[in-house]
């Protein structure tokens, strides 16, 4: 599985990271290096093995349905690079 610059640009688009063409070339090289090294996992026999999602070996706790949070618009908006009153503001989105 070798990545070409076009695939790198598609992945960059999915990740919302701008890459210019020269960067895409370079990234393709680096990523191929890493992915090539990762290919060693193909040696491992994983037949019948259940995937392990995380290190915590327990079931999920459930919390009670009570309102314990919110009501802090100033704190929630306080770090926003652009806000309009009680809203976050972004360039107009056309649907």
């Amino acid at each position: 599985m070798s990545l070409d610059p076009a695939t790198v640009r598609r992945i960059a688009r999915l990740a919302r990271i701008h890459v210019d063409p020269a960067e895409a070339e370079q990234l393709a090289g680096e990523m191929n290096g890493i992915l090539g090294w990762i290919e060693q996992l193909n040696e491992v026999d994983v037949d019948g093995i259940d995937p392990l999602t995380g290190a915590a070996q327990m079931a999920m706790r459930l919390r009670a349905d009570t309102v314990t949070d919110g009501g802090i618009p100033e704190l929630v908006l306080g770090n926003a690079p652009d806000r309009a009153g009680a809203f976050y503001a972004v360039p107009k989105v056309v649907e």
């Binding site: 929630v76 652009d82 309009a84 009680a86 809203f87 976050y88 503001a89 972004v90 360039p91 107009k92 989105v93 056309v94 649907e95």
Partner: peptide
Amino acid sequence: LHDQHPTKSYIDL
């Protein structure tokens, strides 16, 4: 909200 400002969308979470 897309109708509050000519060039911006407003976000309410």
